Amino acid sequence: MPGIALDPATTMLGLVDVQPTFMPGGALAVAGGDAVVPVINRLLAGPFAHAFATQDWHPPGHSSFASSHPGRAAFDSVEMPYGMQTLWPDHAVQGSAEAALHPALDQRRIELVVRKGFRPAIDSYSAFFENDRTTTTGLDGWLRARGVSQLFLAGLATDYCVAFSAEDAARLGYRVFVIEDACRGIGLPLPEGGDTVTAARARLAALGVGFVTSADLLG
């Protein structure tokens, strides 16, 4: 793609939460979430020599589960010590089939799997930080040790874990692109109007995050 050099020495594909729990039939299903898998596999077979993946990995009774808050429902918000937290259905429970990386995902070029959200009292959207915004996953150090300066992100969901990962990557100094047809979003309505996908895209664009499609990269 003009203006984007896919130098394998400095470029990495990041696969965010490509897990059955976020796909049709899963506990926190994203509409069309399973459609990202074949797109990602084409990217892994094509221009990207190196990739990492993230994996939501919650213990039973995690503090972000609505079931852990009597009287609360999924998608309510509650105040946590680290700020406001959306409550979710129980999902990505450690060791479950739903929490595994999707079985159809081609993992041969995935060199690191970052498990996040495993601390019982802190949720984690970003590949780089837990939701307290100070506890790191270690991914930044690993990428820098590898000499990576440019990231392309794909996976689930566009408006949460992909968006938070892209935002943190941009703030940390990486050149960042979101591969739009390799992502799907939840699209929760916002009180001020619009939805979380539209808001996330605007926020990322303001930070200089680019948006591409797999066709731009595969030619």
Rank of each mutant, 00 (worst) to 15 (best):
R72N: 03
R72S: 10
R72Y: 05
R72W: 08
A73F: 11
A73N: 10
A73S: 15
A74Y: 03
A74H: 06
A74G: 10
F75Y: 15
D76V: 13
D76K: 00
S77C: 06
S77Q: 14
S77P: 00
V78H: 01
V78W: 02
V78A: 03
V78Q: 04
V78E: 04
V78Y: 05
E79Y: 00
M80I: 05
M80Y: 07
P81T: 07
P81G: 06
P81Q: 04
P81Y: 09
Y82P: 02
Y82V: 04
Y82N: 03
Y82A: 10
G83K: 04
G83R: 07
G83Y: 12
G83W: 09
G83M: 04
G83T: 12
M84N: 10
M84W: 12
Q85P: 11
Q85M: 14
Q85N: 04
Q85E: 13
T86P: 00
L87T: 06
L87Q: 04
W88A: 11
W88Y: 11
P89R: 03
P89N: 13
P89K: 01
D90R: 00
D90I: 08
D90F: 02
D90C: 11
H91N: 13
A92S: 15
V93A: 02
V93G: 05
Q94C: 08
G95R: 00
G95Q: 08
G95V: 14
G95H: 06
S96C: 11
S96K: 08
S96M: 09
S96H: 09
A97K: 14
E98D: 13
E98P: 06
E98Q: 14
E98C: 12
E98R: 05
A99E: 02
A99H: 02
A99G: 05
A99R: 00
A99T: 09
A99D: 00
A100W: 01
A100Q: 15
A100E: 15
L101H: 04
L101V: 11
L101W: 09
H102Y: 07
H102D: 12
H102R: 07
P103K: 07
A104L: 14
A104M: 10
A104W: 01
A104G: 08
L105E: 01
L105M: 11
L105Y: 02
L105V: 04
D106F: 03
D106M: 06
Q107K: 14
Q107L: 15
Q107S: 07
R108D: 03
R108H: 14
R108Q: 13
R108A: 15
R108K: 13
R109C: 08
I110W: 00
I110R: 01
E111N: 05
E111V: 13
E111W: 04
L112G: 03
L112M: 09
L112D: 07
V113M: 02
R115C: 10
R115W: 03
R115G: 08
R115P: 01
R115K: 15
K116E: 03
K116A: 06
R119G: 02
R119C: 05
P120N: 11
P120M: 11
A121M: 12
D123Q: 03
S124D: 00
S124V: 09
S124P: 03
S124Y: 03
S124K: 01
S124G: 14
S124M: 07
Y125L: 10
S126N: 09
S126M: 06
S126G: 11
A127T: 05
A127I: 06
F128W: 07
F128S: 02
F128K: 01
F128A: 06
F129H: 12
F129Q: 01
F129P: 02
E130V: 05
N131P: 02
N131H: 08
D132Y: 01
D132L: 06
D132W: 01
D132C: 07
